[in-house]
Design a protein around this nucleic acid. Structure first.
Lengths: 315, 315
DNA sequence: CTGAAAGCGCTAACAT
DNA sequence: ATGTTAGCGCTTTCAG
C-alpha cells in the first residue's frame, strides 16, 4: 500500500520511504499494471476514436490534433478504422467500449440506430466529429458539409462560373462528400443550373483517380468553366490533368475541391478550396472531452461547436 | 460462471442455457469488461504501435496495414505518436507497456539504450518496423534506407545525371531520411562527386517546403541536372517549382524522391522515386506478430524480413 | 454440464 | 505515515 502511494506520488509518504520505493522500482524495472489500476479505480485514461480511413491525410491529421490536445492530461487515444463501413464501425465501437474508455469520439453523425443506442448506453461523453448536419448524440464538433457545398457554389457563381462538372468518389460511402455535393447542387438549381457532366469512381479518393476521371471528362467535353471535386486529392488530380492537357487553369477551367490540403496550396495552378480545420477540430474535441470528464461540466457552455471553412482561390 | 462460458462461446454449455444467457445479455445491453478479462486471464489483445508522425501519409498507411493485418484475429492496435522525439517515444512506450500489450511495434531501430532495455524487459514480441539499418531487438521488418539512397544514386548516375542538389527537412530527427542521404552521398563520393548545393528545412517535410527550398536553390544555381529530396512530399514541391519556373523536367532537371506516393505518380512531370511498401510492411508485421504470439514459433523462419524498394522514373 | 473458490494487481476506505 | 480489509469483473482450476 505504501509502495502504491509512493509510486503515484501521493502526499502521505515520508520522503525516506518514497526514495526507497522508487529506488527498488527502478532496480526491478517495475512497470505498473494499468489493467489492475483501471479495474480497481473504475476509470480509465482511454479515449476511443473511430475514423473511417487512414488513406486520406485529413483523418490522421485529426487524430494528431486529438493526440496533441490530450497530451499532458494523462489520457491516451486509441484508434480504430471503420473503412467507411457502418457495420464495421459498430463492431469497433462495441469492442472499444469493452475497454471502458473515459470518452469516445466518432466521425460524423450518421450512425445507425443500434450504434447510437450502444453509444448512449455507455454513459460516457460521446463526441461526433467533423460533420454538423444531423442530430448529435451528445457533443458535436465540426462543420456543415451541406453548407460548405452551398457556399462554394455561391462563391463560384459570384465569380462568374456557370458551366460546372462534378467529379467524385465512393459517394455512397463518403457521406460528407455527398452532403457537399447536395449543397452545391441545391445552389446551382436555385440559379437554374445543373452539373453539365458528372463522373464517379467506385474506389476512394486519390490524386490518380481524380486525374483519370478529369481526363475522361475533358475528353468528352470542354464546355466547362469549373469542375467541383469531392475533395482536394481528387482536385489535385484535376489540376494535373489540366496541366497535361494544356488547359489554362483557372482562366479557362477552375478546379474546386475541399479540405485545403498542403499540396493543393503549393500547386502551380490556383485551385479553389474550402479549408477544413481538421487538426483544430481534433484539438477542440480533446479539450471538450477533458472538460467533460473533469466532472466540472459547468465550464462547458456549448455542446455543439461549429466551424466555418474558409473558401480560398475562387478568384 | 455459466454465463461467462456462454458469452464467450465455450463448448460445455447446454444450448438452452446459452440461449437464455445471450438473451438476457442482449436485454441488459451487457458489454463485457476487458479490463477484468485481461487482468484475470493475464493476456490482452492489444498491440502497441508507436509512429513518429501522423502528418506524413506513409505512417497512417503503415498503420492501416497493421490494422488490416490484425483484422479477424481479435487483436487491436493502439497507436502513439512520438513526433520524432526519442524521449517522448520512451514515455509513450512506458505508458503503453503498462497496458500489458501482447506485442509492440515501434518505428525504426535507433532507440536509445534505456528504451531498448524497457522493450526487452517487457518480454513480449517486439517488432521494429520500416528500417533495417541497425541491430534489431527482436523482429525487424523493413528496408535499408542507406541502401535505398545508394541504389537511387547508382541509378541516377547510370542514367547520366552528374550535377546533384539535395533538399531535405529535419534531417537531424528523421533518421531514415538521413540514412538515405548518407547512402546517396557515399555513391557520389565513389564517383568523385558531391552535392552541388544542399538546402534544409528545420520543420518536417511538406510539399510547400519542398517547393520553397527548390525555388531558392534554383534561384541560386541552375547548374544542376538532378535534385534528390528527402521524400516524395518534398520532391512534389520540387516538381511544382520546375513547372512554375518553366524548367523542363525530367529533361533539364530530374526530380528524385522517396516513397512512391500516389501524388508523385500522377504528377504532370515524371519524377524518380523508390517505392516503399509501407502498407505491406504493416501487414507483414501484423502477420509476424500473430504467428509469434500464437505460441507456435516454429512457423517463423526469419526474424528479419527485408524489403527492397523498387526504383521508378529514373529514365 | 454447472458451480464454488481463489486470485489477477491494484485502489478506496478505514484503521492505527 | 503506514497498514489492513475488501473488492473491481472476470477467468482458471477444481468439484460435483
Amino acid at each position: 500500500m505504501t509502495a502504491s502511494r509512493a509510486l503515484r506520488g501521493a502526499a502521505d509518504v515520508s520522503k525516506e520511504t518514497r526514495e526507497k520505493v522508487l529506488q527498488q522500482a527502478e532496480r526491478l524495472n517495475y512497470v505498473g499494471n494499468r489493467l489492475a489500476l483501471s479495474l480497481s479505480s473504475q476509470r480509465t485514461n482511454l479515449v476511443a476514436v473511430v475514423v473511417p480511413s487512414m488513406s486520406n491525410i485529413v483523418f490522421p491529421e485529426m487524430l494528431a490534433g486529438i493526440s496533441a490536445g490530450l497530451r499532458g492530461s494523462g489520457m491516451q487515444a486509441v484508434f480504430g478504422i471503420s473503412d467507411y463501413d457502418m457495420a464495421k464501425e459498430r463492431e469497433i465501437i462495441r469492442d472499444m467500449l469493452s475497454w471502458r474508455p473515459a470518452a469516445i469520439i466518432v466521425t460524423g453523425l450518421d450512425q445507425p440506430a443500434e450504434t447510437v443506442r450502444m453509444l448512449q448506453n455507455a454513459a460516457i461523453p460521446v463526441i461526433q466529429l467533423m460533420d454538423l448536419d444531423g442530430t448529435p448524440i451528445d457533443f458535436n464538433v465540426g462543420l456543415s458539409h451541406g453548407k460548405a457545398g452551398e457556399e462554394m457554389a455561391k462563391a463560384l457563381l459570384a465569380a462568374g462560373r456557370r458551366r460546372f462538372g462534378y467529379i467524385g468518389s465512393a459517394i455512397d460511402r463518403d457521406l460528407r462528400a455527398g452532403k457537399r455535393k447536395a449543397g452545391f447542387e441545391k445552389v446551382l438549381r436555385e440559379s437554374g443550373l445543373a452539373f453539365v457532366d458528372e463522373r464517379f469512381n467506385a474506389a476512394y479518393s486519390s490524386v490518380a483517380h481524380g486525374k483519370r476521371l478529369s481526363m475522361s471528362m475533358l475528353a468528352a467535353t470542354r464546355d466547362l468553366d469549373c469542375i467541383y471535386y469531392s475533395n482536394d486529392d481528387m482536385a489535385t488530380g484535376g489540376a494535373f490533368a489540366c496541366l497535361e492537357l494544356g488547359i489554362s487553369s483557372p482562366a479557362e477551367i477552375l478546379i474546386a475541391g475541399f479540405n485545403g490540403l498542403d499540396v493543393a496550396s503549393a500547386l502551380p495552378v490556383r485551385i479553389a478550396t474550402s479549408i477544413s480545420p481538421r487538426r483544430q477540430m481534433g484539438e477542440v474535441a480533446a479539450a471538450l472531452l477533458l472538460a467533460a470528464s473533469s466532472g466540472d461540466g459547468s465550464q462547458i457552455s456549448e455542446k455543439i461547436i461549429a466551424f466555418t471553412p474558409e473558401i480560398t482561390g475562387v478568384d
